[in-house]
Design a protein around this nucleic acid. Structure first.
Length: 475
RNA sequence: CGGGGCGUGGCGCAGCCCGGUAGCGCACCUGCUUUGGGAGCAGGGGGUCGGAGGUUCGAAUCCUCUCGCCCCGACCA
């Protein structure tokens, strides 16, 4: 067992904290709720950025950057929006040694500053659609924080688009939640449910919110990404109009969508084990690490030269040779395991002699000898196997822990054990949802897109429902 | 905001009850031996104990106030 890591069975929450700290992903900063993301953690974020950014650009979006300071009055322009964010905003009242005329809010999200700007960018239907994304930090003063899952300041991307019609905006919001789904599945190896939030759970200021929800190893749900159809709410608040083909002035239709460093928390809680971090190969900053083994200077030269020879034509970012000589091989094995490197390669004098290496996969611990010839191809296959296997295991877990329940009594009895519950729940008014939250500390996570038509009585109010929703405890 | 915990070399902790001028492990530096699952020995450097005030000949230790962080619950990506 790894040193100093609480087991999941013992205390899941403490296990998570131990992983983050011991795998050297992040540490607490001097300010409450803030964290320093260390190179190992940031390397994962960079992989997330690179791959998502590509997906955004492939779907026609471009990047820009808007400032983090927002005039306080901007926030107040959209009533629902203000209400949603006011309590968690950090406000700058002094700068340059004096009190500011108007306080500046540190962005909790950028809708307001962006729509104030779009007003000047949009005048004709020819300016639409406007498809912009930004990578940024935002700040939300939460009561309770957790490393990566909920920090006072966090990194994210926020897409903000403007469209000529309701239908186009709807299509965009729908398209982007599917980009997130695809990213979660193929890069994070994290299966997700795709669906719509209830009115109670939707973004303040949106017509509706789409989401992807993942299940962590303890059975709790994690909202991993959201996409909002904002309708004309912000266009009206910031007076953003365009002239259509019929020379009519129209308010534009908007969307916004985002994922954050929370994804790293999701990745950890989906795949890691009691020995440390497990990183899906596609997000691993160092997918393959060589640990050379030697007893003398001669052996060191022999072994490291062999490792260099094997990797001569490889992408330098696809592997690392751990040449540190202050640590013994055993220490390095344990350390790379703790840090989640998907594949470790042990290479010592015996291997050099046989022109082979020992390959160890992080997820299963399986250890096999492989010939040095054609190693790269074998590793690529193995990395793919690991990626697929992680996904398959997570998917199996999510499916086996999704239950169909009809009675509220049964729900109350079982919700504490975790899992997703397919239930009839009337979300057309807040009543049932409120009771659910008060009585079971769980919420409706989403109305899945693929929920089949199925009639039944709400398990709380008895009112008729047309399909089931997913309820669960969540992070 | 409520409950719990903590603040002492970089990290983790002991010392506090019964005041006497700071100790242990890890890490770090030097040297030698080691190196296929978290090396060993020897030598060495580094802190005035979260902050302020008070009691006292003397405070990490006692008293008062204060600041901060973490964890658990009520709000949220």
């Amino acid at each position: 067992m790894a040193k100093g890591i609480t087991t999941r069975a013992d205390d899941y929450s403490q296990w998570y904290i131990d992983i983050v700290l011991k795998a050297d992903l992040a540490e607490h900063s001097p300010v409450k709720g803030c964290m320093v993301i260390k190179p190992t953690g940031y390397g994962i974020w960079e992989k997330i950025q690179q791959n998502l950014d590509r997906m955004f650009k492939e779907t026609g979006h471009v990047n820009a950057y808007f400032p983090m300071f927002i005039p306080e009055s901007f926030l107040k322009k959209e009533a629902e929006h203000v209400e949603g964010f006011a309590p968690e905003c950090a406000v700058v009242t002094h700068a340059g040694g004096k009190k500011l005329e108007e306080p500046l809010v540190i962005r909790p999200t950028s809708e307001t500053i962006i729509w104030a700007t779009y007003k000047n960018w949009i005048s004709s239907h020819r300016d639409l659609p406007l498809l912009i994304n930004q990578w940024a930090n935002v700040c939300r003063w939460e009561m309770r924080t957790r490393l990566f899952l909920r920090t006072t300041e966090f990194l994210w991307q926020e897409g903000h688009t403007a469209h000529a019609t309701h239908e186009e905006a709807e299509e965009e919001a729908f398209k982007m939640i599917h980009v997130y789904r695809k990213f979660a599945e193929s890069f994070l190896a994290m299966p997700v449910l795709v669906g719509r939030k209830t009115n109670k759970e939707k973004f303040a200021g949106a017509l509706h919110t789409y989401c992807i929800e993942a299940m962590m190893q303890d059975g709790k749900a994690l909202q991993a990404g959201t996409s909002h159809h904002l309708g004309q709410n912000f266009a009206k608040a910031f007076d953003v109009k365009f002239q259509d083909k019929n020379k009519e002035l129209q308010y534009v239709h908007a969307t916004s969508w985002g994922v954050s460093t929370r994804l790293i928390g999701g990745m950890i809680m989906t795949h890691s084990d009691d020995n440390g971090l497990v990183t899906p190969p596609k997000l691993a900053p160092v997918p393959v690490v060589f640990v050379p083994i030697w007893r003398s200077e001669e052996e060191m030269a022999l072994v490291t030269n062999k490792a260099r020879e094997i990797t001569a034509t490889w992408d330098p970012l696809s592997y690392r040779i751990d040449l540190r000589d202050q640590y013994k091989p055993g220490y390095k094995f344990a350390e790379w395991e703790l840090r989640g490197a998907p594949i470790r390669i042990e290479i010592g004098p015996r291997d050099v002699e046989q022109n082979s290496v020992v390959v160890v996969r992080r997820d299963t611990g399986e250890k096999v000898a492989m010939p040095a010839e054609g190693l790269r191809e074998k590793l690529d296959t193995l990395l793919e196997d690991i990626q697929n296997s992680l996904y398959a295991i997570a998917k199996e877990r999510m499916e086996s822990r999704t239950y169909t329940v009809d009675s509220y009594e049964e729900y109350k009895a079982r919700i504490g054990d975790g899992g997703f519950f397919r239930v009839f729940l009337d979300y057309t008014t807040p009543e049932a949802e409120q009771r659910l939250q008060d009585e079971t500390k769980s919420t409706v996570r989403c109305i899945p897109f693929d929920a089949p038509e199925e009639e039944g009585p709400c398990m709380i109010t008895g009112r008729p429902c047309k399909h089931r929703v997913i309820a669960a405890q969540s992070y």
